[in-house]
Design a protein around this nucleic acid. Structure first.
Lengths: 207, 207
DNA sequence: CGGGTTCGTGAACGTTGTTCACGAGCGCAG
DNA sequence: CTGCGCTCGTGAACAACGTTCACGAACCCG
């Protein structure tokens, strides 16, 4: 079908334009009419490839998650020891957690509008599966060092703890970069993250 | 002036109605026209006592903060020791931090819509002073146990760390109660907070 | 070439927050 | 008591938004 081709082209063109707008001026600057004008299509055409703007935003957010994953794969990960972990290996695991958290901060600071859109966007409908799958995969990066720090944890508890560690880090980054509660420079915030996540890791190790 | 009296009455009536709407159906259910109908005034009358709806929301949020402070004052606080803290006193300080965090969770879970409005509401203008003052005072509750845990910290660093601890806890509560990332029951979330904040406190104590 | 089907078009609709010209009501001087 | 002027709430009107849908052009196929 030639037709599906055009639809796909329109879809990516809209996603590109929406991504650029969000990255430049934030989620609130995304307007259906501006979007249509930018890609040179009619207003109604948007709704032939997306059910509504929420779906378009979700597609942009998926790109942001992919971008973030590329950033996170550059983080040096402590190797998984065989057998029980030595104190040095546990320290290395803690440092891995800190590096992951700092990488999260760095990504958020480098892509503030894109990153804000991930959370600012409140969905009323249930999230699509392909979005949740992406989230689950990203949490695995946190679970690995946790396996070293607390080897006797069950899979379920470890997954839960990984989400909690992410939530805590997200809180630090979210409120730290947000202008409502405080405005912290990235270096200061990085210091706080190192202190807090470091203490958290050492406390979890149970020494 | 009889006139200021009427204005004040309208102001509180609007605040009451807005608070009820937010508490019942969330921030997004707050509409100027519904509000005017509920308090029996004209649409434009709202703008004679508030510059815009943002200011009205801020007033409601201040009430929420006051409500929260009443909840936080019920938390049992470890007494401040004289001289260097014993290990037991440090443990008590950690438990105070945990209790504060759990109180935060409990308040958020008990008043989900009110609490969400505190953060969901993004302001474009600078926040008024009376709002910031309220925030600063609430942070003092976290600084007290920190003084026991890390006595050699300067005032500035302690204040910063207090905000970071709050941010981490807020992240746990915010994402834990939020339906986007995960939905955790309050008991499960309470367990996570006890684990994370507990580990955080012990790690900070530097044992 | 013509009839039918498909599909983008953009005017129109319903809701927003916010504004502003109007007029009712009141006080006070004549 | 009457008339003038001022104040202040009123609600119709405006601008901007997401979303819809009747229309018409463009294309396919017989």
């Amino acid at each position: 079908m030639r037709n599906d081709d055009r639809r796909e082209r329109l879809r990516t063109a809209l996603t590109d334009a929406a991504e650029a707008t969000i990255a430049a001026d934030g989620l609130s600057a995304l307007k259906a009419r501006d979007l249509a004008k930018e890609v040179g299509c009619a207003l109604g055409a948007i709704y032939t490839v997306f059910p509504d703007l929420d779906a378009l935003i979700l597609t942009v957010n998926l790109r942001t998650l992919a971008l973030f994953e590329r950033a996170i794969t550059a983080v040096r990960i402590a190797p998984e020891p065989e057998g029980p972990a030595s104190p040095a290996e546990r320290d290395a695991a803690v440092e891995t957690l800190v590096r992951l958290a700092v990488a999260y901060l760095h990504f958020a600071a480098a892509n503030p509008a894109r990153w804000r859109a991930l959370f600012q966007h409140r969905v009323t409908h249930a999230l699509p599966d392909w979005y949740l799958v992406e989230q689950v995969r990203l949490f695995r990066y946190i679970e690995a060092p946790l396996r070293i720090l607390k080897p006797d944890l069950g899979d379920r508890e470890r997954a839960l703890l990984a989400r909690s560690l992410f939530s805590a880090t997200h809180g630090l980054v979210s409120l730290g970069l947000d202008e409502k509660l405080m405005v912290l420079s990235e270096p200061v915030l990085r210091g706080q993250i190192e202190i807090v996540v470091g203490a958290l890791g050492r406390g979890l190790a149970g020494k």
